[in-house]
């Protein structure tokens, strides 16, 4: 595992205790300097640093399954939650969190949402993953089969006959579906 770690020969000494940053490199080569508590919300990062004693602060952790765009979205979410946690360590200000999450996800297209779900799954951020899958579910709830296929870019590999059979079998599910 450690062989895949690229060491960055950048900044000063590791003793700068001001705010520890962790460097994460996305699939398209961009390096993100992330505050430690934020980065630690990414379970994959947390366990990487916990399990490897020989990694240092200069270690750049490569995340080959995460695009830069997805990373921006993920950090925005994690930073906001870190902020909530810092302000109210006991209990999160629920209403504020909900307001943030609603606004946050409204700005995300279906494409971005899908990309972020994959990234959150890979990075193992259970809170974000729960949230995003809930949002995706809401976006496809009550929608037609065709809509769901288009949403996820899934190819229909049923034969027309099989599909007709399934439609007959689950006829009860087809009442009052939104077509758009």
């Amino acid at each position: 595992m450690s062989s895949s770690i690229a060491s960055s020969s950048s900044s000063s000494s590791s003793s700068s205790k001001k705010e520890k940053k962790i460097s994460l490199k996305t699939s398209d080569g961009e390096v993100f300097e992330v505050e430690e508590p934020v980065a630690m919300q990414l379970e994959i990062v947390r366990s990487f640093f916990a399990d490897n004693e020989d990694v240092t602060e200069q270690t750049v952790m490569p995340l080959p399954n995460v695009s830069t765009a997805a990373m921006h979205g993920i950090l925005e979410y994690c930073r906001a939650h870190e902020e909530f946690r810092r302000r109210m360590p006991e209990a999160a200000p629920e209403e504020e969190v909900r307001a943030f999450e609603a606004g946050y996800v409204d700005r995300k297209s279906n494409e971005e949402l899908k990309e972020m779900i994959l990234a959150a799954n890979y990075l193992n951020i259970s809170k974000l993953l729960d949230f995003l899958t809930g949002v995706a579910a809401k976006r496809i709830e009550n929608k037609s089969v065709e809509y769901v296929r288009a949403f996820f870019g899934v190819e229909n590999d049923f034969t027309p006959e099989e599909e007709a059979n399934l439609r007959r079998e689950y006829e009860w599910a087809f009442e009052g579906v939104d077509e758009d």
């Binding site: 579910a137 496809i140 709830e141 009550n142 929608k143 037609s144 089969v145 769901v148 296929r149 996820f152 899934v154 190819e155 229909n156 590999d157 049923f158 599909e163 399934l166 439609r167 689950y170 009860w172 599910a173 087809f174 579906v177």
Partner: peptide, 10 residues
């Protein structure tokens, strides 16, 4: 109902 619809996706 929505899960049942998902059965037909692929």
């Amino acid at each position: 109902r929505s899960v049942a619809l998902a059965l037909l996706v692929s």
